[in-house]
Simulated assay, not measured.
Amino acid sequence: MQAYERKQLLERVEREGATVGAEIPDRIEIAGEEIDLQEFVFEIKRRETVPEGERERERVEHAKRNLRRERLRRVERIEEGDIDRAEGEELAGSIIGIDRALNALESLGPTDLEAESKAQEAADKKRWTSFLKKALGRDDGPSRRGR
């Protein structure tokens, strides 16, 4: 593979919207173990949150760590490996699929309702304080400094 082709593949996998329209791979091999990745992600996503129970949460976190490691390993193969264009394309596609799976797993909401409630309350207080400062003319934002 030529250097410019390698660069194009690396740019493709790092592109902001690369996962738009991408599919999560049905199966993927990570550390020598075949995983039904699509089935796992859809099972977790159906619950719309990280599953209850320490064991299930740890399973999801373990899967995310393994996916990140595998993604890095595949990117390094593109960067440094002696591969042809077809293998590079296959690796790039699988990296984007891994990113799609990671995005799905990362978007799961917290299960700690108390912590979520406190975070929501803190965000509400911050918005309210900001609103009051603006309403009372005490906003020290960049738009008022230049006056």
Rank of each mutant, 00 (worst) to 15 (best):
T111H: 08
I30Q: 14
D36R: 15
V13D: 02
K126T: 07
E34Y: 02
G17C: 03
K134G: 15
E39A: 14
R65A: 07
I95K: 08
T49N: 09
R74W: 06
Y4V: 09
G93H: 05
A63K: 06
H62S: 11
G109F: 02
V41I: 08
V50C: 00
R27D: 04
I95Y: 09
D26L: 09
A22N: 10
E43I: 00
D112V: 00
D99H: 09
V41M: 06
E29R: 12
K125G: 05
A3D: 11
E90V: 07
I24Y: 03
F40D: 04
Q38H: 11
L102C: 01
A123I: 12
H62N: 12
K125R: 15
E34R: 08
S94E: 12
P25F: 03
L37C: 05
I28A: 08
E16G: 03
R145N: 09
R46D: 10
P25E: 04
I98Y: 02
G146N: 05
E79D: 05
K133I: 07
R100I: 08
A3T: 10
R85N: 14
I78Q: 06
L37Q: 02
A104F: 05
A123Q: 13
K45H: 07
L102H: 01
K64P: 00
F40E: 07
R145C: 05
E16Y: 09
E29K: 13
R12Y: 04
P142A: 15
M1R: 07
G137A: 12
E56G: 02
G32W: 14
A122Y: 03
E14D: 06
K125H: 11
L132N: 04
G88R: 05
G97W: 05
L136G: 01
R144N: 13
R144V: 14
E33K: 15
P110A: 03
A122F: 04
E80I: 15
E52I: 03
V50K: 01
D112L: 00
Y4C: 07
L105P: 02
G141I: 06
T49P: 02
K134Q: 13
K134S: 13
K118T: 11
K133G: 08
E29G: 07
R144G: 04
E23R: 08
E106S: 01
K7D: 06
